[in-house]
Design a protein around this nucleic acid. Structure first.
Lengths: 238, 238
DNA sequence: GCCTCACATTGATCGAGATCAAGGAAGGGC
DNA sequence: GCCCTTCCTTGATCTCGATCAATGTGAGGC
C-alpha cells in the first residue's frame, strides 16, 4: 500500500475531522513508514520512545530479559496505536505477527503535536488508560492464574478484540469464530507459559467441549459462559 | 490534616502555577476526602472510574479474582496519582498500607477539568504512560522471572521510589536504606508468590550478603550491582 | 500432488514454588 | 514491662507446569 494511503488511514482514524491542513501536514512530515514480514522488527527507536500506528496486519510488543527470555507485553491489531518505550531495565521491540505495515513517530514530538495542535489530548489519554487497564488484567493473569485460566481468559479477550462474528444465540449458534494471528509460542510468551503447556490446555478445553480448533489458527469458542467461568473472573453477581 | 491543607498539597503538586482561581475552585468542588487506617479501602467508586491523590501514607491497588485470590497491581506513595478502574472482569480496590489520607475525584470529570481548563494534558498523559511502563515491567517479572529475580527487581525498584538515602560510594557506604511500608503478604501478592517464598528469598539474599534486614520493615541494600545482576535485567552493554 | 520444515501435539520426568505444619520474633495495648 | 496477636521464618512434602523427547500435521514451494 502506498504511504499516502496508509497515512490517510491513520488520519481518518485519529486526527479530528476539523484538523487544519497545516497540522495534518506536520503529522505527515513526522511520520515514518515501515513494512514487515512475520517475525521482523520493522524499526528501531534509537534511544527514543516511539508511537506506532498499525495500518495493516498485527504486531506484538516483546520485552527481552536476560538469558534470552521474552515476555510478550501486548498484541496489537489494525488501527491500534502502540507506545514503544526506549530501552530501560529491559529492551522492548515491536514485532510483526504477520505481514504488516506501520506508521511510526518519535513519541515526544507526536504528543506535542497531538495535544497542543490537534486537540487530541482526551483521545491520547483514553488510549493510554485503556492500555494500562489491559496491562493490569495481564498482570492478574500472570500472577494469580493457572495455565487453564490464563488460556481461557486470553481467548475470551481475543474474541472481543478480533471476533467480527458476534454472538448470535439460539440452537445453531456458531459461537465466536476467529483466526489467531499468533503462534502457540507467542501465546505462551504472552501468558508466561511454554508452548507445550499452551497446547495441552487447548486440548483440555477442546475435550471439555468449550471450543473447537481447525488448523493452526482457526478457533471456535463454543461456550463463552463456560470459558468465562474457567477464566478466573469474578462472577458477575458477586 | 485538615482538608484545605490536603487539597493545597494536591494543588501545589499538580495544578499549574498560573491556574485561575475559578478552575482551582472547580477542582476543589469535585474533590472528596478520605482517610484510612492500614488495610482499609477508603472509598468505593460506585461503578465509576476514580482518580486518587495520595496526600499522605501509601497504598496498594488490589485486583480481586475468583477464589479469593488477590493480585497487587501497583503500590503508591505520597504524591502519586492513581487511576482506580470501575469493576470489570476483575474488581479493583485501593487499599491503605499504612495510615493515609487521600483526595479522590470521579475520573471523567477530573480529566475534563485537567485537560480543558488547566492545561494539564501533558502531565496526565505522562503519568499514564509512566504507570503503563511500570505495569509492563511488572508483567515481565510475573511472566518470566523466578522468585529470586522477582524479589531482587522489586527491591531495586522500591529503593528508587522510596530511597531518600542516595548511594554514597566509598568504603563506609551504607547502601540504600529504607522502610518497606508493605507486609510480606503484600509483596507476595504483588510478585505472584506466597509469603513463605518471599521470606525464603529474603533469607537467601541475606545469606549472599546482598542485603540486610532489621525488624519487619527495615531493609538495607548492600550490593546494588549484585542485586541488579540477580534481577534478570539486561546487562547494560548488551 | 508431493516434499519439506517449521509448528503443534502428546508423553515421561523433573524441579521450583505452593501448600501444609510448627516455631519464633515484633510491636501494639494495657 | 508483659502479654497477646499478628506477622515472619523455617522445614517437609506435594503439585503444576517446565523440560526433555518423540511423533504428528499443515502451509508454502516447486
Amino acid at each position: 500500500m502506498p504511504f499516502s494511503k496508509l497515512f490517510e488511514r491513520f488520519a481518518t482514524n485519529f486526527l479530528p475531522p476539523d484538523v487544519s491542513d497545516a497540522t495534518r501536514q506536520k503529522f505527515e512530515n513526522l511520520a515514518r513508514y515501515a513494512s514487515a514480514r512475520a517475525g521482523d522488527a520493522p524499526f528501531r527507536g534509537n534511544g527514543h520512545d516511539q508511537i506506532a500506528f498499525v495500518a495493516s496486519g498485527s504486531t506484538k510488543l516483546v520485552a527481552h530479559a536476560s538469558g534470552g527470555r521474552e515476555q510478550v507485553v501486548a498484541f496489537h491489531f489494525v488501527g491500534d496505536l502502540v507506545s514503544v518505550p526506549a530501552r530501560a531495565a529491559h529492551a522492548y521491540s515491536l514485532c510483526a505477527l504477520e505481514e504488516c505495515e506501520l506508521i511510526y513517530f518519535p513519541a515526544e514530538q507526536f504528543f506535542r503535536l497531538a495535544i497542543d495542535e490537534a486537540g487530541m489530548a482526551n483521545e491520547m489519554l483514553d488510549r493510554a488508560l485503556k492500555a494500562l487497564a489491559r496491562c493490569r488484567e495481564k498482570a492478574i493473569s500472570l500472577g494469580r492464574k493457572n495455565a487453564q485460566e490464563k488460556l481461557a481468559s486470553f481467548l475470551v479477550t481475543m474474541a472481543e478484540r478480533l471476533g467480527g462474528a458476534e454472538r448470535l444465540g439460539g440452537a445453531d449458534d456458531p459461537g465466536h469464530v476467529f483466526d489467531l494471528p499468533m503462534s502457540r509460542r507467542d501465546i505462551g510468551d504472552s501468558l508466561g507459559l511454554t508452548i507445550e503447556t499452551v497446547s495441552r490446555q487447548f486440548s483440555e478445553l477442546r475435550e471439555r467441549g468449550l471450543l473447537e480448533t481447525a488448523g493452526r489458527s482457526k478457533v471456535r469458542l463454543i461456550d463463552m459462559k463456560g470459558l468465562n467461568e474457567h477464566a478466573g473472573h469474578l462472577p458477575v453477581a458477586a
